[in-house]
């Protein structure tokens, strides 16, 4: 079980969190202006890298805040956590 450092509460067991998939996929500014393909990309397509991945987590059983984390999907190491709305940090 991962130990996840909630930016608001500090390190907590993974069981307190809810996973939210890829981060930085914004709801389109004007969905009506998108082609079917562009809308389908927003709805159905997500990255699935081996390595660093920016993803969303919610501290459901804690402060109930959504935040983002950069996790290495090969090792499960979490390199950074940051609040929703902040830019993805650069990991060396």
């Amino acid at each position: 079980m991962l130990l996840i450092a909630c930016p608001w509460c500090g390190p907590r067991d993974e069981a307190e969190f809810h996973y939210g998939g890829q981060a930085h996929v914004a709801y389109p500014e004007d969905p009506a202006a998108l082609s079917d393909e562009e809308w389908a990309r927003y709805l159905f397509f997500r990255d699935n890298p081996e390595g660093l991945f920016a993803e969303r987590w919610s501290h459901t059983a804690g402060c109930r805040r959504w935040f983002n984390a950069v996790r290495d999907t090969a090792t499960n190491e979490i390199h950074a956590v940051y609040r929703a709305g902040e830019p993805r940090p650069v990991i060396a």
Partner: peptide
Amino acid sequence: LDWMEEWLQTEWP
């Protein structure tokens, strides 16, 4: 409730 909070926090803060 989760749905409302998710949209409020992640899209419409």
